[in-house]
Simulated assay, not measured.
Amino acid sequence: MTTFSSGDAAFEGFRLTRENPRVVLAWSIFHFVVSSIGAVVLIAFGGDAMTQLAEQPEAAPGEMTALLREMAPAYMILAPLGLATMSAIAAAVYRLQLRPQEGGFGHLRFGADEIRLVLLTLIYYVLAVIGLVGLILLAGVIAGVVAAVAPDAQAPAAWATLLFCGGLIIYALVRLSLAPVLTFQERRLVVFGSWSLTRGHFWRLLGAYVLAGLTIAVVTLLTTVIFAAVLGIISVTMGRGLEGVGAVFQPDFSSISAYVTVETFIYLVVTAVLNAIYYPVILSPQVVAYRAFRTPEPAPPYEGGAGI
């Protein structure tokens, strides 16, 4: 068993991207293609509704409901697309570090590994809903008891309950955080195996995740500021003024020709590169923890899968 360092784990993703520029380029292309497909889906199935929402931000509740209902087909397509995308890129990050010999375009595939990660995500979604319902019921019971026994203590009790429930959620998320990498490496659904593997390591794991999240947030903020400045210069140079910058953050989904502009294209490229860095930074601490906490075992035989 190796030593786990929160700092080393938090910056592992940056090391990974620095040492594998071709893989990062492949991931950037992948994210760009997926984002472009998502934009086309929105335009084709909900473009008019999104345009009306942008033009009428204070629409009446009935009109808002009708517009959201009109956009439903788009989100019914985008939801599984997003789930498949996240599973594919997560598997690619794990594969690069745990099974680099499998190769492929950016280690991207969509086979049994990715399907298992999709199923794991759906299972956790159901468990999260059940857990949140349980916490809401618990909070309601506590509030009722406090109101009956000590009415003056309702406000402090509410804050204490909120902090307790929030802490419980964070604790569960950290303790179960190695489930995806376990599922990937063991080539089987591992829903609760992370709980025993992370026993006694909560604070170090939390530190790694917080540090990685803060670091990528700073990188994203700085990139956004620089991007906005450069985009403003380009937009002014092309005679569009600053309206071109505003259109990037509130694009016109009424048609493909209206959506596609120089500014929008640059935006898609920049966000694709940021996503290609974001995922390894956020996911790599899991791989570092897995290697540190688990006794090395030979990986099961390669199953194959369709490359992307």
Rank of each mutant, 00 (worst) to 15 (best):
V41E: 07
G239H: 11
A272H: 04
P21D: 10
I308P: 00
D252H: 06
A54F: 11
P180I: 02
I123F: 15
P156S: 07
S35Y: 11
G134A: 12
A229F: 15
P61H: 05
V133C: 05
M238I: 08
T51V: 10
G232T: 08
Y302F: 14
I308D: 05
V181G: 02
P180H: 04
P180D: 01
V23G: 00
V191N: 02
P61F: 09
A60M: 12
G305H: 07
A157T: 11
I226Y: 07
Y209L: 02
V281D: 00
A157S: 15
L135P: 04
A44P: 00
G232N: 09
I308H: 05
A292R: 05
Y279S: 04
R109Q: 12
F293L: 08
E243F: 05
F253C: 07
A79I: 14
N275G: 15
Y124V: 04
V236A: 14
A276H: 08
V126N: 02
V190D: 10
L182W: 03
I142W: 09
P300I: 01
A276K: 05
Y209P: 03
D113P: 14
P151C: 06
I266W: 14
F11Y: 14
S257A: 15
F227T: 00
L127D: 00
S196V: 09
R116D: 01
V24E: 10
S87T: 05
T224C: 03
A217T: 14
A10G: 07
G193W: 12
L53A: 10
H31S: 10
V262E: 00
T51L: 12
P80F: 06
T3M: 10
F11K: 04
G82W: 01
A160S: 13
D252S: 08
T17M: 13
I282Q: 12
N275M: 10
A299W: 01
P21C: 09
T85G: 03
L25H: 03
V219T: 08
L189C: 06
F105P: 00
L83R: 06
I115W: 13
W159R: 05
F293Q: 04
S87C: 15
L132G: 06
Y259I: 01
F4W: 05
G47P: 10
V146N: 08
H107D: 09
S5A: 12
Y290C: 00
R69S: 10
A276T: 06
L83G: 04
I234V: 15
Y125Q: 13
L120G: 03
V230N: 02
D113C: 00
M50A: 14
P21T: 07
S254W: 11
A217V: 01
A59V: 09
L122M: 13
I216R: 03
A90M: 13
V190L: 03
G200H: 10
G106N: 10
G134T: 11
L242A: 11
S284P: 12
G305C: 11
A153M: 14
I256E: 08
I169Y: 11
P301Y: 07
R188L: 03
E114R: 09
L135Q: 11
L221P: 01
A155Y: 11
R175D: 01
I170P: 00
V146W: 04
P285D: 02
A299K: 01
A143E: 07
G144T: 12
G131P: 03
M71C: 09
V181N: 02
G207R: 13
